[in-house]
Design a protein around this nucleic acid. Structure first.
Lengths: 184, 184
DNA sequence: TCCATATGAGACATTGATGTCGCAAATGTG
DNA sequence: CACATTTGCGACATCAATGTCTCATATGGA
């Protein structure tokens, strides 16, 4: 389609992606200049590889949702119990909390992002069904509530780790416990 | 300080506040024109009563945090058990989910908003201590985790009601149950 | 080392939102 | 009904961010 005149250097791309996630998480309305500065990159370089600001946000959004989908699926192993699969998912997804946050406040309407989100929701809903099947979650609880709870727990766990009062493993186990047994 | 030349009409103020919450929740970068249009008000009228855009966002933010703090405190009755106080808080705060959402994405740095948020956090942390005291929450669970969980449950409950799959009472009880007993 | 090219820096035009103003009309109050 | 004042509308200047371009420099591969 568009033959890019310039080929982006891997290091440059990585710096831009990480900076954009960081800066746009702090302020969804952040400027191209701010992103460039945080990335240690010239503003023109941003425009060279991401034609418009929307292109940049969309590209990062797509990358984030792909990262998360990949993480969710990579850990799924046949023969595992539902709880074990949930644990694997937590382990893989919690470290991507910054991606999760980015998607929550940016490009909430991009079709490709929505599609990726739909696939993830589908996967989680299937897991919820299995959790109910195996008696880990009460059948009477609406599945959307369980799915929402799982989503929120990922975010809470990421914050706990970022705040430093829990290790990754502790946060994962506490999230599992919160969902099934509660905090009593 | 500033003697306003124009006195705002209550109906006008109400329309602006509600429209601003609605529009800025859908898109944090929304324009003054969009807010004015949604409020059924001239753009100049916005500027007449809220000198700058920041003034508008701050004013709404302060109102939101005040609404929430008022709701949290209004329901506190002496002699109630910790769980009953938590239930009262859920009942009062969950309907303010749109306020909560607004504060999450706008004016995250306004000093007065931060102060109000700090007071609310303080109140919740005190409640968490009482919940631990009465055995409703395990002492081993870090209090920040419990507080975060309570916050998230308010938001989840509001969404469930907005989505229509739970009534206000059902959402309140399910939130309580999720926190203490879990979903098993 | 040399060469191809990606990058940084800065100038530039353009665009869209902001904030101000004046005036005519609507509103509500007595 | 008459009066005072808020409101809507449109014109306007201003400003900040966007997107484009050029050229000198830095970078990495052969």
């Amino acid at each position: 389609m568009s033959a890019r005149r310039h080929v982006i250097r891997p290091a440059t791309l990585e710096a831009i992606v990480e900076a954009a996630i960081r800066v746009l998480n702090a302020n969804a309305g952040a400027t191209m200049s701010e992103v460039a500065a945080q990335a240690g990159v010239g503003r023109a370089t941003l425009h060279r590889h991401f034609h418009t600001r929307d292109d940049l946000v969309s590209a990062i959004g797509i990358r984030c949702i792909e990262d998360m989908n990949a993480a969710v699926r990579a850990e799924a192993t046949a023969g595992q119990s539902a709880v074990d699969r949930l644990r694997s998912m937590f382990r893989a997804v919690i470290p991507l909390g910054d991606r999760y946050s980015f998607l929550g406040t940016n490009c909430t309407d991009d079709p490709r992002v929505r599609e990726g989100y739909g696939m993830q929701l589908q996967w989680v809903m299937a897991l919820v069904e299995d959790l109910k099947e195996q008696g880990d979650v009460d059948r009477d609880v609406p599945s959307p509530w369980v799915a929402a709870q799982i989503d929120q727990l990922v975010w809470t766990a990421w914050n706990a780790i970022a705040a430093g009062y829990l290790s990754a493993d502790e946060a994962t186990e506490l999230a599992l416990r919160t969902l099934t047994e509660g905090l009593r």
